[in-house]
Design a protein around this nucleic acid. Structure first.
Lengths: 336, 336
DNA sequence: ATTCTGAAATGAATCGATTCAATCATGACC
DNA sequence: GGTCATGATTGAATCGATTCATTTCAGAAT
């Protein structure tokens, strides 16, 4: 059970520990015979490098931390995949943390990542977590904000123009003849939510006679969406909105489930519905869901890109805000 | 930029490094005044513990590794959530690795986790990865197989009876009057796939006159499902099966998308369809999807439970195979 | 034979938190 | 005043891989 270290390997191969380390890290600096003797010893003893010791010496870990709002949301797993792929190219691993839209969990993950001395942190922050993030960066951990911009322009960020996206969604609903819109989303402390709402407000303001009701939710999940849908279904027909813009696809799918259950409220005839993110399941929904598409994997890989740049440039790095444009995807849920 | 260690904190607070460590780990052993003095110094200097150093000393990390076949599959994210919750209770973190149904990636994650000296590994293995797993465990890393059993009964495992589940699905299709079944899934090296097929075979064998066609796929994704669906749609109506059992819900949703696109093939009238896993999106599909439900979060938490037990018991632990029973969920896709 | 060169190998020092045997201080008690 | 017990604090040793200044050595050049 006694764990095997370079020391044992060195003894077995009849060389010094320095040589074992060289075989591991720069085999070209070691003569061929020695390399194979050391490798044989490693094999024989079942030696496995201790990453903690490496990291301690190196001062940095070989991973980057990613904190997302919800791993259950395919948008974020797609984003994570993009990040992983780019990170792998640089020989780095991605540690995925799920804040679950909770400040305490977000904070706990940031602490954990900092204790791990990660190469950097990608985060889709809950609110303005600016303080903790600045501190994190000041102490030397490169930090990139994903999926939204942040007030503090000294941070790099990769985002999609959510105000524009919200405008796109609401305009589309209005153009198909709807006049009594409802926005479903929350908590409003989440920037993505308030921006999308803001975009919708602007679109509505451009069209006199069109109204916008705002329905708050506690989170962005299918379950919350279903609750809203049931509430809508319970209303008298003339008290219902004729179009719903949900802050993301999970909510939209929940609303859709509740509305179309029992076939009581028809989508899109009675209520048109549009979501946000264009997750893979949107097109497979009861009524295929119109949505606003974001380049999820690209956001992830670009964020890693910026992170690596920040890590390389050190003190004299220049923050960069990359903003992608979202795209309207029309499907049956807003068709005629 | 000079990083702050316990040494600096000790100097600032006018105490020894040992005392700083005690404040961090057993504040009750230290006088109140000293505690607050040390904490003030920590605050002032912005000290952050170095996890690598802690781990090196401790010999183990405070996380457990989880390797799943596909993070894009909600079944696995649900499982991961269950594992995380249970692990958090024990003060542990879960590192999530995505093998993407690739042997090389699976192996790379196992190596990584071993170098990290994780507390233990949960894995939903690709094939019979027995060799690498045995080695891993022999060297001292507790290992639990999730979502399937493994030949080698010296491993603990938490699984669902997939043969039974396959039987359940196929029987259901047969009972609703279908006679020309098709099983869609692959690769068959994945145990879950072959077990579910085996169950379907048995069900079919029990009913003379019922046939079973097997359609191979390269992976268990929506995309592969869509390809199969399109192939089915392209067939002459009388050459199509009248019922499809897909090895998981992602495949089923893909098949459904392709079939119902353009309304050419009606589900369930022309082809009944059932999936497996009962992910949240199944009930929100074009045609709400019948499925076989597995207790995903419970599998995850139970697996962590077994892992902790194995870690505690050390040498004299007894492997345990927990097998849950799956459950049939009937929705419109197999209704009349 | 002597000096020089470059490649190969060495091994002590280092990273930072934790541990634990040893020391110190304080007050209770006889 | 002296003895003890208790609690608080100390600091050197430890975990294991990596680094780098130094040593070793075979062969080339003089």
């Amino acid at each position: 059970m006694a764990s095997i270290s370079v020391r044992e390997v060195a003894a077995e191969a009849g060389v010094s520990v320095g040589t074992v380390s060289n075989v591991l890290n720069r085999p070209d600096k070691v003569s061929a015979g020695t390399v194979s003797r050391v490798q044989a010893a490693i094999e024989l003893l079942g030696f496995v490098r201790n990453d903690a010791a490496r990291q301690l010496r190196a001062g940095r870990s070989r991973s980057i931390g990613l904190v997302v709002l919800d791993v259950g949301n395919p948008f974020f797993t797609d984003l994570a995949r993009g990040a992983e792929d780019r990170a792998a190219q640089a020989g780095l691993t991605v540690l995925l943390g799920n804040s679950d839209e909770t400040a305490a969990r977000e904070s706990a993950y940031l602490d954990l990542f900092e204790e791990q001395r990660v190469h950097g942190v990608l985060i889709s922050p809950l609110g303005e977590s600016g303080d903790q993030l600045s501190r994190l960066r000041r102490r030397g951990t490169p930090t990139v904000v994903v999926d939204r911009q942040i007030e503090d322009l000294s941070f790099s960020s990769v985002s999609v123009d959510d105000v524009f996206g919200g405008h796109l969604a609401a305009s589309h609903l209005i153009e198909t003849g709807r006049t009594r819109l409802a926005f479903v989303g929350g908590p409003h402390g989440i920037r993505q939510v308030s921006d999308r709402l803001e975009g919708a407000r602007r679109a509505v303001a451009e069209h006199p006679g069109v109204t916008l009701e705002v329905i708050h939710t506690g989170s962005l999940s299918v379950l919350e969406g279903r609750a809203v849908g049931e509430a809508l279904r319970a209303r008298a027909a003339d008290a219902r909105p004729d179009a719903v813009f949900a802050a993301n696809d999970l909510l939209a799918l929940g609303v859709l489930q509740a509305l179309s259950m029992l076939g009581e409220v028809r989508v899109p005839q009675e209520i048109a519905l549009i979501g946000y993110d264009d997750i893979a399941f949107a097109s497979a929904a009861v009524v295929p869901l119109s949505s606003i598409r974001q380049p999820s994997a690209l956001i992830g890989s670009t964020a890693v890109e910026l992170l690596l740049r920040e890590a390389d440039d050190g003190a004299d790095f220049v923050p960069e805000q990359v903003v992608f444009q979202p795209e309207l995807v029309v499907r049956a849920s807003t068709g005629v």
